[in-house]
Write a protein that binds this DNA or RNA. Structure first.
Lengths: 153, 153
DNA sequence: CCTCTTGAGTTCCAAAACAGAACTCACATA
DNA sequence: TATGTGAGTTCTGTTTTGGAACTCAAGAGG
């Protein structure tokens, strides 16, 4: 199967992966959430080649995750900022950060500390059930085919 | 920068991406959470070429996300199952599924429905603050360098 | 005994993606 | 006129994929 085909699968993970399932794309999003907007800033922070960066930004814009806006005329200058669809990826990034902090630590402590403005405390993200608000573990979830399924699980 | 170097960054996202930031790896994990364990089952479901699958499974085992166990002797047969470290990726997968359901839907409804055994209801995952239990939005989070940081954010 | 099947891979080749560096283009400043 | 900046594109050679066939060990069928 080709990369270009996986977005057509009847699976939300496959569709999501078709948009963000790339090392550079995930790092671009990380920097996007940290406030990076300009081409050269992404390039300098990521160390990605300019060619690949241009390609990934184009794809993220096409997917509606980033919006390219002209922030200056003469000379024309553009930046890339997260759309509402892009901002909705925040839980994904929080989950990645938390897993990395917990399972890929190097003994020097967390590279970043997250503070919740709502309560003023440093926090870690917790995934809970939308119905009962209890934390969810892998064993607590039963999966079954939904209306959009094409095959049995 | 090469793929092999990004795991050394002082960033939990980069370290996490160095392990799971690959289209096939994420789909392997998806199937792992759905109970797939054997080489040929992964291959048939994913449509990935066998040597890429062998490579990704090897890397996931090396990273401690999957464990390769002999489930039969004579002939020797092995399977791959999630370790506790791998099971800890569950929130990442839930976040990916939820984003795909919400933002990549094709109008046919959700491919999978998740039921929480704890309360017996179909649910969606919600990311909340570990301190105040309120849902977290991107705008509610302030990020600052932690003890493991190597540079200012 | 000989062939077929299953599970878990490995090997080979061509096609695609990538890294690194240099180059373009439009304007701005010294 | 020379230098710099932002946002890319082009060129070249190396890696990584995709696709298909092949290996190996053992059990099953005839």
């Amino acid at each position: 199967m080709r990369w270009s085909e996986i977005g057509e699968e009847a699976c939300s993970v496959a569709r999501t992966v078709s948009v963000i399932g790339d090392r550079w794309t995930l790092l671009i999003l990380r920097d996007g959430f940290l406030g990076i907007r300009r081409f050269d800033d992404f390039q300098a922070r990521l160390g990605v080649t300019r060619h690949i960066l241009a390609d990934r930004l184009r794809k993220l814009v096409a997917a509606g995750v980033l919006a390219k806006t002209r922030y200056e005329d003469r000379p024309a200058r553009y930046d890339y900022r997260l759309t509402p669809k892009g901002l909705a990826l925040h839980p994904v990034l929080l989950a990645l950060v938390h897993w990395g902090d917990t399972h890929m630590a190097d003994g020097k402590g967390r590279p970043l500390v997250l503070r919740h403005k709502g309560c003023g405390c440093d926090f870690t993200p917790v995934t809970v059930c939308s119905r009962c608000a209890e934390p969810i573990a892998a064993r607590d979830v039963r999966v079954r085919p939904g209306p959009g399924a094409r095959r049995a699980v």
